[in-house]
């Protein structure tokens, strides 16, 4: 393993510092209490500080003697489409109902692959919607309406 300056290390460290920092700032707003009777803010403050310090250590190490991590290009199309598909599901399941929401989510996800053709994608998502309906609604009797109130033909 080669050791040199490493961007991923710095990025990872940055994320830890950021999240740790946000929690520290948030925890300052809660009652800290005393060690005897800790308030809700005590533990998150401590752990948040630990995360931030470890993040700083990772950044420093990344600048001096980082890990070289083999990396491939980010599949932006997949990132965008899959996030979109998941968020769509959460946002519309209440209003559109099970079948339409699942179908759109499945289609968006299927298109995340760069190698899929539209016709194949449509067929796969139709198949998955039927399968999901059979498994979850018919088989496991989840109480989600098949067609929601917001869905109009």
């Amino acid at each position: 393993m080669q050791r040199r300056r490493s961007l991923p290390d710095v990025l990872a460290g940055g994320i830890f510092v950021l999240i740790g920092g946000v929690f520290v700032v948030g925890a300052l707003g809660y009652d800290r209490g005393t060690p005897l009777r800790m308030g809700p803010g005590y533990f998150p403050l401590m752990v948040g500080a630990i995360v931030a310090v470890l993040g700083l250590a990772i950044i420093v190490k990344g600048l001096v003697a980082g890990e070289v991590i083999p990396s491939e290009a980010v599949p932006w199309r997949a990132v965008v489409l899959i996030v979109l598909a998941v968020v769509f599901f959460g946002f519309f399941i209440g209003s559109l109902g099970f079948v339409p929401t699942s179908a759109v989510t499945a289609l968006l996800t299927t298109l995340a692959s760069r190698r899929v053709r539209l016709l194949t994608a449509l067929a796969v998502s139709a198949g998955l919607t039927v399968a999901a309906t059979l498994i979850f609604v018919v088989g496991l009797q989840l109480r989600i309406p098949l067609w929601g109130p917001g869905f109009v033909f």
């Binding site: 899959i82 998941v86 989510t105 996800t109 995340a112 190698r115 194949t120 796969v124 399968a131 498994i135």
Partner: peptide
């Protein structure tokens, strides 16, 4: 290409 949409859909 069939497998991963299934995972995502069933997971959500």
């Amino acid at each position: 290409q069939v497998l991963f949409p299934m995972i995502v859909l069933f997971a959500v």
